[in-house]
Amino acid sequence: MGYELRLKIKDGVRAVDGKVILVTGAASGIGAATARMIKERGGIAVATDIQPGLDHVLDVRQPDHWDAAIEATVAKYSRVDGLVSNAGTMSAGSIIDLKMDRFRALNRIHVEGAFLGIQRVVAQMRKQSTPAYGSIVITSSVMGQVPMPGLASYASAKAALTNMAKSIGVELGRKGDFIRVNAVAPGPVHTPLMVEAMPPGYMDDPASFADVPLGEAANADDVAETILFLLSNESSFMTGGVSVIDGGWSLS
C-alpha cells in the first residue's frame, strides 16, 4: 500500500504528529488558531505573517519571501508536509465604485499569494519523495460560493481560491502524487479582520447573527479544527473539496 491509512485512535486526537506545516497569516485570527492547534496536537507549525514577530516574515506576494521561508524550514526540519494558505484581507464597497488598484491589491494577496505558495510548496514536497505526500489547505469563504453584495471583490477572490483547491487537487492526484488540496469555507467568524471590516460593535452583537441557523458566528478555533482534520491522515481520501463551516448560514 502506497499510502497511510490504518490509523490508531490516537491519530484522531493528535492528528498531525510530527508533521511540519507552514501557516501564512498566522499573526491573528484563523491562522493564529491553526498554528497553535498544530503545536498542541504534536505537529510543528512554522508560523509566518507579513507582520514581524513569528517564525518568518512572509509577505505572500513576494516570491523571494516564500523561497526564504521554505529554505529555512527545510534547513531546520528537513521537510515540509503541509501548507495552510491563509493570509488574506478584506475590502468592502460597491464594485461599481471600486478603484481598480484596490481590486488588484486584494487579488494579489489572496489569489496570487496562494498560487505562489502552492507552486513552491509542491516543488519542495516533490523533492522529498516519489510519489510526493502532503496536505494543502486554502482558507476560502462561503462567499466563494454564494453572492455577497458589497463584497464582490472579496467574494470573487475567494471563488478563485475555491476553484484553485479543486483544480490543483485533481491535477496533483492524477499526476500520481498524494498531495491533497482542500479549501475551508467559513461563514461569519470572530476574527480581528472581521471586527475591522464590520461596523463598530457588529461582531459582538448576537443579533448580527440571527440569520445563522445555529445562531452564532464561529470562533477561529472552529475553523482551525476543520483545517486540522484536512491536514491529518484522517482525510487522506479527500482532495479537491470544500469544507463549509458556517452554522448553516449559506443554506437559505
Binding site: 464561529a218 481520501f237 479527500m238 473539496g241 463549509v244 463551516i245 448553516g248 449559506s250
Partner: peptide, 11 residues
C-alpha cells in the same frame, strides 16, 4: 458549527 453541508469524500 458545521450543519447543512454535503461533505464529499471521493479521492
Amino acid at each position: 458549527l458545521v450543519t447543512g453541508t454535503a461533505m464529499v469524500v471521493d479521492g
